[in-house]
C-alpha cells in the first residue's frame, strides 16, 4: 500500500506550492510592467531626439490625431512615474515572498528529515 504523506508535511508543501505560484504570477506581472516602462523610455528618448518643429500624432482608432508635444511628454512622464512606482512595489513584494518561500523551504526540508531520516532506523513515516 502506498505511504501517506504526514498531514503536517502535506500542509507545508501546499503552502510552498501556493507561494511558488504567487511568485510566478508576481514575476510575470513585474515583467509586463518593466516592458511597458522600457517602451515609455524609448518613446521619450525618440521624442527628445526629434526636431522641435516635428508634428506629433497619436493613433485613436483608425485616425491619427495631432498632439501637442509638451502634453505628450507630460503624459508619458506621468505614466513613467506610475510604472516606476508599480515596479518598486512589485520588487518589494517579490523580496518578501522570496524570503517567506526560503523560510518555508527550510521548514519543509526539516520536516522531510524528521519523517524520512536518511539511513536512520525508522525510515517509515507515521501513517496519517
Amino acid at each position: 500500500m502506498a505511504e501517506r504523506i504526514p498531514p503536517e508535511l502535506q500542509t507545508q508543501l501546499l503552502k510552498l506550492q501556493q507561494l511558488q505560484s504567487q511568485l510566478e504570477r508576481l514575476a510575470y506581472e513585474k515583467s509586463v510592467i518593466e516592458g511597458e516602462l522600457r517602451e515609455v523610455n524609448e518613446v521619450l528618448k525618440e521624442l527628445s531626439n526629434l526636431p522641435q518643429d516635428s508634428p506629433i500624432y497619436k493613433i485613436v482608432g483608425n485616425l491619427l490625431v495631432k498632439q501637442d508635444r509638451t502634453n505628450v511628454q507630460n503624459e508619458l512622464n506621468e505614466r513613467k512615474e506610475l510604472l516606476e512606482l508599480k515596479s518598486r512595489t512589485y520588487q518589494k513584494q517579490e523580496g518578501l515572498l522570496r524570503k517567506q518561500f526560503e523560510d518555508l523551504q527550510k521548514k519543509v526540508n526539516e520536516l522531510v528529515q524528521k519523517y524520512y531520516p536518511q539511513g536512520g532506523a525508522s525510515s517509515t513515516p507515521p501513517k496519517a
Binding site: 517602451e39 515609455v40 524609448e42 518613446v43 525618440e46 521624442l47 526629434l50 526636431p51 516635428s54 508634428p55 506629433i56 500624432y57 497619436k58 493613433i59 485613436v60 491619427l64 498632439q67 505628450v72 508619458l76
Partner: peptide
C-alpha cells in the same frame, strides 16, 4: 514621412 515612435505615437519627420 510618419514614423511610429511606439505606444501609438507618430512623428512627421
Amino acid at each position: 514621412v510618419l514614423v511610429n515612435l511606439g505606444l501609438g505615437y507618430y512623428a512627421e519627420i
